[in-house]
């Protein structure tokens, strides 16, 4: 073979290989097959409706097999009390598993704080759960790819693959992740993925007696959640981290983040 032919054939081969491999990038079969342009799960929390009963926390723990007395939880409710002098007090004892049944505020080692009724300027409850971020920090930092995002936007953990390094727990700006006390792997809210893929509702939304929690499809223009997000004035938690959270709040106050 002449040198000229060799160079020519090599050039043809390289060009051909580059073309075909770039096609693989353009039409990544995994992406094409998994993409669901018609479905993106989202969540709406109406803080005005929450009364801090803690039914959602209980329902979640039972549904998702998180030991009821263990001090970790996939969802929780926070109580905020803002005093007349502007001081903000907040708490979430046991994640509000048993609801807020008295007026004293649990400040952990600093003890219980009593606030007189006349000193209270406002008080409200804020339910929290995984934000199923569009660009999740936890998925980014997992060293083995055990936590991943599904095509419909939910972030899940593979319990058989997680090594338990805790990097995702550190990486989450919302503190929704923890180590499962029995499985010894990272755990978090999944929007009750096992239920919603079969057309069910999340356990917390179903248990809420006041409709403060609502799951919806953000890609469906007729979905109540999608409508609320599009037409209403909603807020999200800690958007400064660039994670694009997909849990939206009605009546979010500046004290909450």
């Amino acid at each position: 073979m002449k040198r000229r032919d060799f160079i020519r054939q090599t050039a043809v081969f390289v060009a051909g290989a580059a073309m075909s491999s770039s096609a693989m990038v353009m039409f990544d079969p995994k992406q094409v097959l998994a993409q669901r342009p018609e479905l993106r799960w989202g969540f709406l929390v109406d803080t005005h409706r929450c009364v801090g009963c803690g039914f959602c926390v209980k329902a979640c723990k039972i549904e998702n097999d998180i030991p009821i007395e263990a001090n970790v939880t996939r969802t929780w409710v926070e109580r905020y009390v803002i005093k007349q002098d502007g001081e903000v007090l907040a708490e979430s004892p046991k994640g509000a598993l048993n609801g807020f049944t008295n007026k004293r505020i649990d400040q952990n080692t600093s003890g219980m704080i009593e606030v007189k009724d006349e000193d209270v300027a406002q008080a409200f409850f804020v339910p929290k759960l995984c934000n199923q971020c569009e660009t999740p920090a936890c998925v980014q930092v997992c060293p083995v790819g055990a936590t991943y995002q599904t095509a419909d936007g939910v972030v899940l953990v593979d319990r058989k693959w997680c090594i338990g390094c805790g990097y995702c727990i550190m990486g989450c700006p919302y503190g929704v992740r923890f180590f499962h006390p029995k499985e010894h792997v990272a755990d978090k809210c999944t929007f009750c993925y096992h239920r919603i893929v079969d057309g069910g509702d999340t356990a917390c939304a179903q248990a809420c007696p006041f409709g403060a929690r609502k799951l919806g499809n953000l890609r469906d223009p007729d979905d109540p959640v999608a409508k609320a997000v599009l037409y209403g004035r909603v807020g999200v938690l800690r958007d400064e981290y660039g994670t694009k959270p997909q849990v939206f709040y009605l009546g979010l106050s500046k004290e909450v983040h």
């Binding site: 001090n71 979430s92 600093s110 503190g175 006390p181």
Partner: peptide, 18 residues
Amino acid sequence: MIVHGEAWTVKDLFVLPN
């Protein structure tokens, strides 16, 4: 029931449950 981390952590004021 003991969660990883609970044995050596003491919380003060408002700390998230997890």
